[in-house]
Simulated scan of single mutants.
Amino acid sequence: MGATEKTLHLVVHGRVQGVCYRDSMRREAVRLGVNGWVRNRCDGTVEALAQGEADAVDALILWARRGPQLATVTRVELRPGNGNYAVFEIRESV
């Protein structure tokens, strides 16, 4: 990973399941050139890891705070993430 890249772990709260949040995030990440993953959690949140150029990751975070049209995001928790990712994928729910 280069000096201008970063990796962040997100937990998105609100009405974020059953509204195409994961697929919409995947499409936005691909558009921005961000790698990582997204998945639903059994507590009703969506969890994701975003890795890439700092500006692109920041843009994905801004998108995550809104989500797709039917979503109602109440908060996004952020913390540093780790790992190396070559694509952005939807993972199995946990």
Rank of each mutant, 00 (worst) to 15 (best):
F88G: 08
E89G: 10
A50M: 10
D23I: 04
L78H: 02
V87Y: 01
Y85L: 06
L32W: 02
V87T: 15
S24P: 07
W37P: 01
A48F: 00
R39I: 05
T45G: 05
E47K: 07
A86T: 15
A48S: 12
R75Q: 13
G36N: 02
A71F: 02
T7N: 13
L78R: 13
R26H: 03
T45V: 06
N35K: 12
N84I: 10
V19K: 09
V16S: 07
T45K: 03
V19I: 10
N82K: 09
C20Q: 11
L10Y: 05
V94N: 13
D43W: 05
R41L: 14
C42L: 13
A54S: 15
V38Y: 01
S24D: 04
I90L: 13
Y21S: 09
I61V: 15
Y21Q: 09
I90Y: 02
T72D: 08
N82D: 15
R65G: 04
R91S: 12
A56P: 11
R31H: 11
A56V: 04
V87K: 13
V19W: 05
R65P: 08
R91Y: 05
R75K: 13
M1Q: 08
V46K: 06
L49A: 03
A50N: 01
E53T: 06
G81L: 08
C20V: 04
H13I: 07
A29Q: 05
T7E: 03
V94I: 11
E47F: 03
V87H: 12
K6A: 01
A71P: 10
H9E: 12
R27C: 09
D58R: 13
A59F: 03
L10A: 06
S93K: 11
V73M: 03
G2L: 10
V38I: 13
E53H: 12
V46F: 05
S93E: 15
L60I: 07
C20A: 15
A71N: 08
E92V: 14
T45C: 14
G36I: 00
A71K: 04
G44A: 10
V11P: 02
E5W: 00
D43E: 11
A86D: 15
R75Y: 02
A54P: 04
M1V: 08
T45D: 07
C20Y: 13
A64D: 02
L49Y: 00
A50G: 10
M25F: 06
G36K: 01
A71R: 04
A29Y: 01
G81K: 05
E47N: 06
Q17E: 11
G44C: 10
L62E: 15
E77Q: 14
G33W: 02
K6E: 07
F88R: 06
T74E: 12
A29V: 06
A86N: 13
T7M: 03
L32N: 06
L62C: 10
A54F: 00
T7W: 00
D55W: 01
V11I: 15
G2Q: 11
C42A: 14
Q17N: 13
R26L: 08
L32K: 06
E89P: 03
E47P: 11
T4P: 02
A48C: 05
F88K: 08
R65N: 11
E28L: 02
K6P: 06
L49H: 00
R26W: 00
G52K: 03
N35R: 09
E47W: 04
V46R: 08
G83W: 03
G67H: 02
V30T: 13
T72W: 00
N40Q: 09
G2A: 11
